[in-house]
Design a protein around this nucleic acid. Sequence first.
DNA 1: TAGAAACATTGATCTGCATCAACAAATCAA
DNA 2: TTGATTTGTTGATGCAGATCAATGTTTCTA
Lengths: 190, 190
Amino acid sequence: MMYTQLAKYITDRVAIADEQLQVILSHFKPLTLKKNEVINIIGQPARRMYFVNKGCLRVYFLKVDGGEVTRRFAFENTFSTSLTSFISGEPLTEFTTAIETTELLYIPRDDFYRLLDVIPAWEKFYRHYLEFAYVNNTKRLQSFATQDAAERYKLLLKENPHYVLRLSNKLVANYLHISPEALSRLKSKI
Amino acid sequence: MMYTQLAKYITDRVAIADEQLQVILSHFKPLTLKKNEVINIIGQPARRMYFVNKGCLRVYFLKVDGGEVTRRFAFENTFSTSLTSFISGEPLTEFTTAIETTELLYIPRDDFYRLLDVIPAWEKFYRHYLEFAYVNNTKRLQSFATQDAAERYKLLLKENPHYVLRLSNKLVANYLHISPEALSRLKSKI
DNA sequence: TAGAAACATTGATCTGCATCAACAAATCAA
DNA sequence: TTGATTTGTTGATGCAGATCAATGTTTCTA
């Protein structure tokens, strides 16, 4: 059933009474995105937290010249939102799109935050989510700060080989902050 | 008194009974670092969370060639630790040093985490800290992903002018991930 | 299933910033 | 205070990776 993955995701991470789990699940609604559909409206804050049941989301920044720089992918069984905006309530600076047909569950931001005060296990769950997001963010910052393009690519191959298998070269290159041409040349040398 | 700043920092951010606040404060101990003293031991995990009473910490990554890349500064009235290691318990990848004589208060990691389960206000306080750290991290990632050196410098001048006033050019350049020469040339053009 | 559009590869050229070098200015240590 | 180290500035040169261009290949779509 549609909520099975989400329920398992939560109970794998935090001890929670079934009754409270049901309360949480009851706030999630389904949504299906088509390939390349963009989820956000520019100028508005992030109003929802998404859980990916099937498919894959891409979160990206916009450059002044209109170019997109990929910040993160969200594959199956991950939560995703424009977290800085979700936290601060300020307009989005990161946008989300589906790289293929994607089935989501989402919870409205207000419901999400209200549950934090009511269900301690949910506060703890969110804390773990934040910790995980922070660690990922920092690893990425570290990679850009200390490695050149070839080293970043090798690290990706080692840590997340499925990225390279599942995504187009163009997306992988964009994720590594290099041009598709540069990635193509890198691959031919390794 | 030594704990005044810390107590104010906490009560400014979260509602907490004085009794519980005292419990938290009782776990913090003072420590003074000399200029350029490094706080961490390579290969060990982060064992403490620090609060800066006076002075300034610099957190940096190490490159393979031994070069340092500054990740963050922690001025007065901020918490600081090698958070990825503090969270995961894995060995450090970010190191901390004092850029001038610095007065700290620190709480051991085990105490910190134990208090999360005992004092809900502390869990909430930590959640806010994580949210803040995440937002800062992401802004920095966004700056590197979407801006060139001159734009990053202008952004820093606009958002954190005290960085430029208080820190040496060398440190500012390192923070922006450019060479001191490049920063010097940038400044002469603006 | 054909034509169009997007993607991948390879070569040629360009450019932002690093690196190296030399010297002036500031800071430090005794 | 003085000599020594560190920092800041400016010029010359180098290079990783961007951009532009041409061609082949895959994938959408009607």
